[in-house]
Amino acid sequence: MIRRLFIGSVWLYFALLLVGPILYLAVHSFDEGIAAFWNEVTRPDALHGFLLTIEITAIVLVLNLIFGTITALVLVRQHFIGRTILSGVIDLPFSVSPVIAGFMLILLFGPETILGTFFGTLGVKVLFAMPAMVLATLFATFPFVVRELTPLLQTIGTDAEEAARTLGANEWQVFLKVTLPMLRWGFVYGATLTVARAIGEFGAVLVVSGNILLVTQTATLHIYQSYVDFNYVGANAVALQDAQQDRLAIREA
């Protein structure tokens, strides 16, 4: 009896929090018919938003996998002064509001700052352009890969790698044939979380992108804009696509 009560409450919780809202979103995307839905999704600004989101996500994913792996390896394998501090700082993005993170980038790369002037003279536009949006998304997603890999690296230890060395494998072969394959599930989970978060990142991206239509408006920003403009079908439709992308990313993983 109590067991059923527990199982039932879990179902209810899921229904209210997850299934309900998603179903509602799916149904109301078609309030004005399939044609209207299709129109909204294929509008140039919506399409541009999708493409931009995919681009940013791809760049962020690649960078996170590379630097996340290096960071995790260094944190677990190397003993150096300040290691615990570094390890604590990695979680910082989780505790900083994305809007504040975006604001920090504005302060850092603003036109009156050293960095801002430097890039300005080079003719590279950082703020309200791709670089700042990638930086903001990187900031928010950096912990995922590192946090998946560190516990894995700790349990794996170095025995298998040493065994490979005694069998004649050089450092590069050890890394490719032993270390990376043993970390594969960590990569899968880390990548999944990174992709999901990168697609959905809003606060930081809103602040640094300027939300310029057809230039720096991502899919998520497009939804926000449509919502603000009372275009509920458009918001719902793009949101549904957005959710779909998220789901696909997770399923692929």
Partner: peptide, 16 residues
């Protein structure tokens, strides 16, 4: 270690 041509067996197997 790669060039010493030794066989090494670890306590906890260290299998791949």
């Amino acid at each position: 270690v790669q060039d010493r041509n030794i066989g090494f067996v670890f306590q906890h197997y260290a299998l791949f």
